[in-house]
Design a binder for these strands. Sequence first.
DNA 1: TTATTTTTTGTCATAATTGACAATTTATCA
DNA 2: TGATAAATTGTCAATTATGACAAAAAATAA
Lengths: 196, 196
Amino acid sequence: MPRPSLKDQRSDEILDAYLTCVARFGLEGATQERIAAEAGVKRPLLRHYLGNRGQMITALCDHVVLVFDRMTDGADAVLKEAQSYEEVIGLLFAEDIDHDPRLLVAWQALAVSVGDQPDQRDALLNSLERFLQALTRTFQRLSPNRSMEKTRAVAQGVMAILVNLDSLSILSPPQAWRNELRDGAAILLASLEGEG
Amino acid sequence: MPRPSLKDQRSDEILDAYLTCVARFGLEGATQERIAAEAGVKRPLLRHYLGNRGQMITALCDHVVLVFDRMTDGADAVLKEAQSYEEVIGLLFAEDIDHDPRLLVAWQALAVSVGDQPDQRDALLNSLERFLQALTRTFQRLSPNRSMEKTRAVAQGVMAILVNLDSLSILSPPQAWRNELRDGAAILLASLEGEG
DNA sequence: TTATTTTTTGTCATAATTGACAATTTATCA
DNA sequence: TGATAAATTGTCAATTATGACAAAAAATAA
């Protein structure tokens, strides 16, 4: 007899608008007015669905980690098919890739402001570690004879380059930079090739 | 006859406090109250020395670029003495290096919020380009036979790893990550070694 | 000491942001 | 249709942030 609940759907919509605002204005710049406008709802609804400001930040953190993990799973599935490092580079640096540019920006904004809350700190670090392990698994499969240490180091380097590319994209850097960063990742991967 | 002006000194002190607050709370979270408290002055002084909010942001952007360039010059001077890539790695990743952890965090906070103002955008990008060129010069000196393309790509990769390390440091990641990132940079540099 | 300029502080008005809650509307089922 | 529970909206108080300006304090040279 009750009206059907839209809690999950609306919460997701609002969190997505929140994510957009944080990526554009920073965490403190993402006011409830802006979020509500972005989501196309009235401000009191934010409170209704997500709670007060602190609870909203916690919910956003969970949401970012969730989306990040989904992205990792997607990348992992695609990387499983790759048969060469050229293919890996092509997949990771594809221009037309379905890749959310807001994600890492919001990730970093959260990192600076929740660094003191252990739970959220660990959640953010874990989401990175998951992605790192996805990369590492693929590299190990393509170069099974390499030491774990070297494989991890290369994976860290590739991830750093990917993160850097995302951070820079806000400033729309020259295309040459993008190419150079991709080539840098390719050089790193090439170090895993060849015999033992 | 007039009282001696402290404008330059006070402005620098306030900008430094501003930098601290932006690194800790984000650009929008760096309120005048917090800045004044951090600088140990009363709030109206901020306005007196730096102007209104918009002018303060502009001044901060200039200050960050200035400090960044000073850091680049310092790194450049040190790198000039390096005779091997092991030395380069040791210098860039020294634990005890005199290196301001606020700098890149504030750089990124500014990047997301001034992305639309062309002047500040270019200033921020130029400061990165300057550091990139400092790295590139050293790598070219140590490996004069390498192509410019490869040298730049390696420099971009190393810079990405350094930036990433700074961004992560807020979350105090496991020491293993730091080591892996440093090893990743070392692997990149090793690709410049050897003949032709 | 006095004039001059700057620093520094005090204070008020306005706008922005958030918290809280009442009231209304809407959709479902009995 | 009427009851029920949820969604949605309206509104106000409290807190916070900013802008603006007047006034006091301090330092130097004449």
